[in-house]
Design a protein around this nucleic acid. Sequence first.
RNA 1: GGGCUUGUAGCUCAGGUGGUUAGAGCGCUACACUGAUAAUGUAGAGGUCCGUGGUUCGAGUCCACGCAGGCCCA
Length: 1193
Amino acid sequence: MKYPEYKQPLNYGQLGEDILAWWKEHGIFEKSVSSREGQPTFVFYEGPPSANGAPGIHHVMARTVKDIFGRYQTLLGKQVPRKGGWDTHGLPIELQVEKELGITKEDIGKKISVEDYNQRCKETVMRFKAQWDDLTEKMGYWVDLNDPYVTFEPEYIESCWALLKKLYDKGLLYKGYTIQPYSPAAGTGLSSHELNQPGTYKDVKDTTIVAEFKVVWDEKAKQLFAGGDESDEIFIMAWTTTPWTLPANTALAVGSKIKYVAVNTYNPYTLKRQIVVLAKDRFTSFFDLMGMEETVGVGSHAWARGIDPAEVAVGNTPRHFLLGNELNEDQKNEVLAKNKLTVWEVVEEFTGADLVGLHYERLFGQEAGFPAFEGEERAFRVIPGDFVTTEDGTGIVHISPTFGADDFRVAQQNNIPALMVMDDQGKLSPIVDRTGRYVTQMGEFGSRWVKNYDGHDDTAADYRTLDVDISVRLKERSRAFKVEKYEHTYPHCWRTDKPVLYYPLDSWFIKTTAVKDRLIELNKTINWKPESTGTGRFGNWLENLVDWNLSRSRYWGTPLPIWRTQDRTEEICIGSIAELKAEIDKAVAAEVMTHNPYANGEKVDLHRPYVDDIFLVSPTGQPMYREPDLIDVWFDSGAMPYAQWHYPLENEGQFQKNFPADFIAEGVDQTRGWFFTLHALAVMLEDSVAFKNVIANGLVLDKNGNKMSKRLGNAVDPFATIKQFGPDATRWYMIANAPPWDNLKFDPAGVTEVQRRFFGTLFNTYSFYALYANLDEFQTSEFDRVPHAELSELDRWVLSKLQSLIVEARGHLDNYDPTKAARAIQDFVTDQLSNWYVRLSRRRFWKGELTQDKRAAFETLQECLVVVAQLMSPIAPFFGEWLYKNMTDGMRAEAVAKNTPLAPESVHLTLLVEADLARIDPKLEERMELAQRISSLVHGLRKKHLLKVRQPLSKILIPVFNRQEERQLSLVSEIICNEVNIEEVRAVIDQGENIIYGIKPNYKELGKRLGKNMKAVASMIEALPSEIIRQFKESGSWLFILDSEQAFSIPSTEVEFFPKSIVGFDIAADEKVQKAMKAFGVPEWRVTKDGPLTVALDITITKELRQKGIARELVSRIQNLRKERGLNINNLIHITLANSAPAELHEAVASLGSYVREETQTLSIDFAADVNGGSVLEFDDYSVPVRLEVATA
RNA sequence: GGGCUUGUAGCUCAGGUGGUUAGAGCGCUACACUGAUAAUGUAGAGGUCCGUGGUUCGAGUCCACGCAGGCCCA
C-alpha cells in the first residue's frame, strides 16, 4: 500500500470536510468516549451558549480552547464526556421578542398574553441552533449535541427549584430589598432599560446643600485632632443634591487614598467659629486663597483686610492662635465679602483612611422629634467608599442606605444600618413611602412630598420644597455650610415625566455573604489561567461580596418557587413537581383552587403564567400566592452541574461521577457571571469547588484592535473563515498567536501565515516522505526497525529533539497553556525537522538502493511525523488526523492484529506517546546547535565574500578550549562539511601560545561581589593586554588594585575568555596584507565570530577545488534541464556537450565525470562537435550547447 | 470613579530569579541556492522597550506616579 500523494497546494477547507465526513461515518467522536469506558473521567462542563443569535468568530476561539483539553485528556486515556447545553432564559431574548413584535414590557398582559409572549420567547431562543450545530461540527468542536441540557425544560427548572429549596432550608434564601430606580408617580420600579430611554435624563435645578456633621469628641477624635479640645466644634462637610435624603443619613463615606484637611474658620450663616473637614482638592471651591499661590497645607492661613489675627487671638490652644470665637460686625462683612470664605487656617491634614471610624452626631435626632431606629448605635460613622471622588462636592459623601445603590452596598459592607421606621401595618419601611412622601413619624417634616408628586404649582411664590425647608432648618442650626441652587441632570420616569427616586424595593436574595470566607478559601484551590483573574478580578469580587440578588421582575425565566400568604406570615418553598402537585391537592381540598391542573398527568410547564395561576393553602388555612419574581438567569447556568442530570431529583450517581469539573473555559466576562454562580452554588450546596481548572479567555478583536460588531462591518464570519483556511489553520492561529487569556487581534493574514509556514511546511515534509517512500515501495513497520544505536548522528539528534518536544508539549498542555504547546510543536516542525533534519538528509532519501541508512532515515522521519500528528491533534484535529492516517493506514492491519499503539483507526483514539527519556541526549543537542551556528557563520562568510556555496572550499578552523569541545566538534564536522560545502573542519586546541584570547567581565558575577567597585574593576579587566590575559587564564585568578587602596582578586570564573585570534593569522589583519601573503603561498583566511565562537574560513581555491566546483555547476545545470523536460526522478539519460566548451569543463568531466553521472542519473557524458536540436547550459562566464536524450529502458 | 489587564521593530509576538550587543516570524531590500522549489539560506535596513521619577554599580525586567487601549463593575 502506498502513501497517498497530493498536489500542491493542499485544499485545507476540503481536507476539513473530508475528515469530518469520515469521522461521522465511523462515529469517531462517540468512540473517543466509549473506548475510554472504565477509565478515570476527566470532567468538563460546557458553559451553555444562547442560540438566539448567530455564532461569531470569538465562539470559535472559546470553543477551540475547550476542545483542546477534551481531546488531550482523551489522548491521555481518560474518558471525557462532554454534554452540550443551551442557555435559554433571560432579558436579551425578551428584548428581541419585544423588538420583533413592536411592543414594550407595558404591553405584556395587555396586547399579548403572558402565555403567548413566553411561547414566542421559547421559539426565538433556539432560532439559530442549526447554525450553531453546523459551526460546532465544522470547527471540530467535539461536544455531545444529541443530548444537551436545555434550561427551559421542566426537568431543568425542577432541578433549580430543588436547589433553591435546599438553600431555603439552609436559611440562605431570604427576602430583603435593593435600591432600584422607582417612579412614585407610576408606582412601579423601572428597569435600567427603561431608564435608558431617550429623554429620561433632564436638566433640573435643585436646592443643594453642603451639610455639616458634628464630630463626636471621643478617643478617635482626640487622636486625630491632637491640638484641639472639646470646645472646638468640628464638622465633617458633605454635599448632596437631594437634601430630602439627609434625615435618612446613617454614615459618611471618604476615599481611603484621598487627602483631607481640617480648616479653622467660621460658619458662613451663623459666623460661629468652627473646624470643618473636607478634601484638600476641594479646598479652593469653598475658601479664597486671598492671593496666595502656594498649595495649602497645615499652617497655611489667610485672613481678610481689617482682621488682625492678634486682635482676635483668644483661642485657647497653640493651634488656634489666629482666630477668635467672636467676630464684630465689620469683621463679619469681611469674612463674607466674597462667595468664598476669606478667613481660614488649615490645622490638620490626613488621608481618608485616617478619618475612617470617626463618629458624628445624627443630623435629625430624637431630641428634635425624629424617630429612633434599629441599629442606631452602629450608625453615624465615617466609612471608606470606593466611589468617592473629589470632582465635586467636598470629597465626602453622605450615605443614606435606603436611597442610593452605592450607599446601600457600602453600608452593607461596613455594617451600617439603614434608617427604617415602622409603618402603620407594623412593617419596616424607609422614611419615604411608596407614593413619594415622608412617613408621618418624620417630626416637623412628616407627610411632606419629597418631590412634587402631588401636582402643586411649583411656580407659585409660596411654594416651598422639602429640600428648601430642610436646608433652612440646617442653616438655623449652624449645620449648613453652603446652600445653593444647582443645575444637574436627573432621571425621570418615561411615562409620568416625574423624577425617579432610588428606592428600596423587595427582592429575594441568596445569602452568599454567609459563606464568604469559604468561597474565598476554596477559590484559592482553583487553578486559574491566567492566575490574575482568580486572585484579582474574581478574588476581589469575593472580598467585596454582597448577597446575590435573585429577583427579576420579568416573564421568560425560571419562576421563584415560593408561595406566601397575604399577610406574609406563612410561606412555602416548593422543591419538586411532585411536591407542587401534592400542595395543589391540599389547596383543592381547602377550596383555594377549583381543581388540580396537573392531576391527570398533563405535561407540566413551570413557566409563567401557569405557575401564577396556582394558589396553595397554608397550614392555618390561608391562601398562598406565588412571589411574582423570576430568578436571575445566572442561577440557571450556575446550576448546570446538578440540573443537567436532573439532580437532586434523580441520577445521584451520574452527578457524583461528574462533580466537580476538572476543567471549564469561558470568556473573562463571565467572571462575575457563570464562574461566580458555579462557585457560589457549589460552595453552598456541596461545600466544594465546582471546577478545578479554568481558563478565562479574552476577547477576539479585529485586526486593528477594535471590537467586532455587525454595525461596523468588521465582524469576521466564522463559516467563511473555516471554508477559506480550513478549521485547523484557524484554530492553530488563534491558539499560537497569543495566549487565550490575552485579547486576540484577529487578522486573516495571520491565518494565511500559519497555513503557509506551519501547515505548508508540514505538508511538504509529508509529501517528501511519501514521494521517496513510494519510490522505494517502503512501508515502515512498528517492529523490525534499525536499532537506535545504529542510527546516524542526525537521526539520533532529531529523535532526541522529538522526545524533548514530547516532554515540553505535554508539560504545557498539562499546565493548561496551549499556546506554548503550539509554539513548541511549530518550532520543531519548521526549524528542526524541516529546515535542518530533512534539508540535510535529503540525499539519504533519494540516493541509491534501500540500504539500512536509507531505512533509518525513513523510519526516523516517520516517527517524527506520527508523533507530531498526535501532539498537534488536540489543536489541529483534522490535519492531525489526516497526517496520522496517511502515515499509518498502511500499517493498520498489522497493528490491529498485534494490538499495537497504532491499532486505532483515528489519531483521536490513540494513546499519546510518552517521551523516551533515554533517547534525549543533551550533548548531542548541544553539538548540533554548535553545527547550526557554525554553518550559519560560514554561510555568512561565503555571502560576504561572494563565495558560492556550490564552490567547495578546503577547510575551516575553529579554536576550541579543550578536548571535550574538540570531540563535540569532530562528531558534527561531517554535517558541517555537507551543509556549507567544505572539505575539512579543523579544531585548533589551545596548546601553549597558538591562541590569543580576549577577555570580557562577567558582570553578573562581578557585580554581585563587588557592588559599586564593579565598574572600575571591569574597565581594568577590559584593558588587560593579551599577555596578561593569557597569564590570568592559566593562573585562574588575577589581582586588581583599585586607587592603590583596595585589592580585588578576581577568579577566572568571574570573567569570560574568548579566542581573539590564532597565531598564523589575525582577525584584525588587513585584507590587503593577507592578499600580499597569499602570493607567498600562505592560505588566505576570512574570519568571523559570534560570542565565544570564532570561525576562520580558508578561501583559497585550488585547481582541484575549482574543478569540483565546475562539476557541481554542471550537475546543477543538468538537473535543471531534466526538470525543464519534465523527467521523472528515475528516468536515465545521455548527455552530449558541445566540443566548444572551455577546457576546464572538459577537464572536470574527465576527472569527475562519474560523480556527475551518478548525481544526475546519466549513463554517459560525451563531447561532440554537433549538438543541434539541443539546449544551452548557462554557466557564470560562458554557455555550452547540450543535448539530452532519454535512455530507453 | 474602582478592580483586573495590555503597551517591546511597519505587523504579530518571545524576552526564569535585574547583568552591559533586546530577539523571532511575517513584511521590505539585496544576494545566494535549486530533484521539498508557490520551498529554502545569508545579509541589510528597521527600536526614546508607552512616559516621568525612584531603587541599584547596573532597569525592558523591581517600586511609585501618570498616559493610552481593553474587559468587568459602579
